[in-house]
């Protein structure tokens, strides 16, 4: 399938009110030439997946600082699958304890980025995921 611009949904599920990190990542994606749909704070997994479908994004990047990642990430992944949208690359960023990372990957997160992650690394990881998806 020929694709034009990479489209990324940057979303903040759950109840925390700090979106600085999400905005910084959104900006990094924009500066990498991608189209970033930013949906703001306090999104439910249902709203996030519905937005991802309507916007036909290639990537959903979740920013979670509330500690509820173990619930939210599997839920988003499950809803994406239910919509036949499991081809969308799911990424997670925020305050994620190291020991929770394997479970999130198991649930469907292609990448997990903790505090202090390098922006260039996040962008290049995203691009690599998309290339893998395209060639598969």
């Amino acid at each position: 399938m020929t694709r034009g611009k990479v489209r990324v949904l940057v979303a903040k599920p759950g109840l925390d009110s700090h979106d600085r990190g999400a905005k910084v990542v959104a900006r990094a994606y924009r500066d990498a030439g991608m189209e970033v749909i930013y949906t703001g704070l306090h999104q439910t997994p249902e709203q996030i997946v519905e937005a991802a479908v309507q916007e036909d994004v290639d990537v959903v990047a979740l920013s979670i600082l509330s500690g509820a990642h173990s619930v939210l990430v599997p839920r988003v992944a499950e809803l994406l699958r239910a919509r036949g949208a499991e081809d969308i690359v799911l990424l997670v960023g925020g305050i994620i304890p190291e020991e929770d990372v394997p479970a999130l990957r198991e649930a469907g997160a292609a990448g997990v980025f903790g505090p202090g992650s390098d922006l260039d690394e996040i962008v290049s990881f995203t691009v690599a995921c998309l290339e893998r998806r395209r060639s598969s």
């Binding site: 959104a26 991608m34 189209e35 970033v36 703001g40 519905e50």
Partner: peptide, 20 residues
């Protein structure tokens, strides 16, 4: 953006009622 070709599309932030 005329420089990077990227964009931040933020209109959905205010469009909450129709979101679901």
């Amino acid at each position: 953006s005329p420089f990077t070709g990227g964009a931040i599309l933020g209109d959905r932030i205010r469009m909450r009622r129709g979101a679901a």
